[in-house]
Design a protein around this nucleic acid. Structure first.
Lengths: 118, 118
DNA sequence: TTTATATTTCTATAATTATCTAATAATGGA
DNA sequence: TCCATTATTAGATAATTATAGAAATATAAA
């Protein structure tokens, strides 16, 4: 992951419809949700929904697969993880004891960890 | 954390100078870095740097403190964590086994975890 | 072939944002 | 007190960019 990959990903997340959609897909799990279902659930016109899903896909945050005449979109957990890793790279110069109240405790599972911890 | 808080945070991260600055502060640790040092390090004019730091601060991603005539900026690890938590809320409907290759293993420390795991 | 679903293309509108210069504020030392 | 340093604010400009809608196209199922 490089800056040029991270910037479009964060840009994709800074739009309400897209943030809602990605969070919905994160909840949904690997099976994903059909484009039409998302369109209906959020009350967004299909072309607009498609546009936003494409943005998320281009940013590497979701993937799609065809199933019959539906296109299912699913969160790309690996892409999301790489983005967070990039943001937290070399956290506290690798000394997690410096992260203040967010120190990574042994055997805990924090949403992010210092690079040296992962 | 709500959508209205997350959106400006992601928007803040979608600008190159700000993303660079935040990653630099994440590396620096709680002590932070003076505004002038960041300005010089990245070759950005002081007013421009100040503008971007303010954006990051407004987004809750960094904090500042005065020390003599310097202003030190430091990563707000709590804010960053809350942002990631928000993005991953209720991941896979709380069943981490569904997260595909990024399953949260027992006793592992992943950069993010399903909500039910944290 | 007909229907349902999804995507693409195009366009108009609007909005935002990044950066520069100049001025101001605040601090600390001589 | 005066000066040098550091940082922020204000004002102005310019460029970019993104959003969303309409219409048309493609794909697949019944």
């Amino acid at each position: 992951m490089e800056t040029k990959d991270a910037l479009p990903a964060f840009a994709a997340l800074s739009q309400e419809n897209r943030l809602n959609a990605l969070r919905r897909l994160v909840k949904a799990g690997p099976r994903g949700v059909a484009a039409g279902a998302l369109s209906e659930e959020f009350g967004i016109a299909p072309p607009t929904m498609s546009f936003h899903l494409k943005e998320l896909a281009n940013a590497g945050l979701i993937s799609s697969r065809k199933e019959g005449r539906h296109v299912f979109y699913a969160a790309n957990y690996g892409g999301i993880r790489r983005l967070v890793d990039f943001l937290m790279a070399d956290c506290c110069q690798g000394d997690p004891r410096l992260c203040g109240p967010y120190v990574i405790k042994e055997n805990s599972r924090e949403p992010f960890a210092c690079a040296s911890e992962s």
